[in-house]
């Protein structure tokens, strides 16, 4: 196939379907959508389940200040996901590992600070039920963020859908943590690692597998499209 033939073949496909394309907004503008979602979740959580019992002891800075820091970190991670979906803006692996580290470090560091201010230990008989509730609610809060990340990233052409899924899930987990700490007063390390970090890891894994499915579907579609020509 020479140059003219290739162009002719492309023209036949492109010219009939060429419409003005609505340009994507910048990654940070699109990522802002997670902030009102987080505010909505906090409001619903406080209205339906109430503010954490030790809010007065913890104080506004530790409760809302650090929650905001977590939210900003989640926003930055989410922005990175959307940036990754633009061709030519692929991030390096170290940056992704850094994002993973920031998510887990922030979660545990904020919990440790809060625990120092207001230590609360769960009785062994309640640990499982409270833990499951925490994990369940955090997952419910985090899944829409994961889905939003995958949907917004699919508007571009990401090279690594698994990473997109994984990091969207982690961002969802961090947002869920920022939201849920306004209700859950248990910040003991065992509870945090088992259930709160567990929820973040669960969301990250869910994202990774969603990305893998997306990748498989994409590869399948590619194979189908390219096979007749081979």
């Amino acid at each position: 196939m020479d140059d003219d033939e290739t162009f002719e073949a492309l023209s036949k496909v492109i010219e009939p379907e060429l419409q003005p394309a609505r340009r994507l907004r910048r990654p940070w503008v699109r990522a802002v959508s997670v902030l009102p979602y987080a505010a909505f979740c906090v409001t619903v959580l406080i209205v339906t389940r109430g503010l954490r019992g030790d809010a007065d002891v913890v104080g506004p800075w530790l409760l809302w200040g650090f929650g905001s820091v977590q939210l900003i970190a989640a926003f930055l991670v989410f922005r990175k996901v959307l940036r990754e979906s633009i061709p030519g803006k692929t991030g390096r692996p170290q940056a992704w590992l850094g994002a993973l580290g920031v998510v887990l470090f922030l979660q545990l560091a904020v919990a440790a600070l809060t625990n120092a201010q207001s230590p609360r230990i769960l009785s062994p008989e309640r640990a499982m039920s409270v833990g499951l509730t925490c994990m369940g609610i955090m997952s419910i809060v985090g899944v829409p963020v994961l889905l939003l990340g995958l949907t917004l990233a699919s508007k571009g052409l990401p090279a690594r859908p698994r990473i997109i899924g994984l990091v969207s899930g982690l961002a969802g987990g961090l947002i869920a943590e920022a939201v849920y700490r306004s209700h859950c007063p248990y910040t003991h390390l065992t509870h945090m690692l088992a259930w709160h970090s567990g929820a973040v890891v669960l969301l990250g894994s869910l994202g990774f597998f969603s990305g893998a499915v997306w990748d498989l579907k994409r590869t399948g579609a590619w194979r189908q499209r390219r096979s007749p020509r081979k």
């Binding site: 496909v13 492109i14 060429l18 394309a21 609505r22 340009r23 994507l24 910048r26 979906s85 633009i86 061709p87 508007k155 571009g156 052409l157």
Partner: peptide, 9 residues
């Protein structure tokens, strides 16, 4: 062509 919306000027 399919990803043209993802180009930022």
């Amino acid at each position: 062509h399919r990803a043209r919306q993802s180009y930022l000027p």
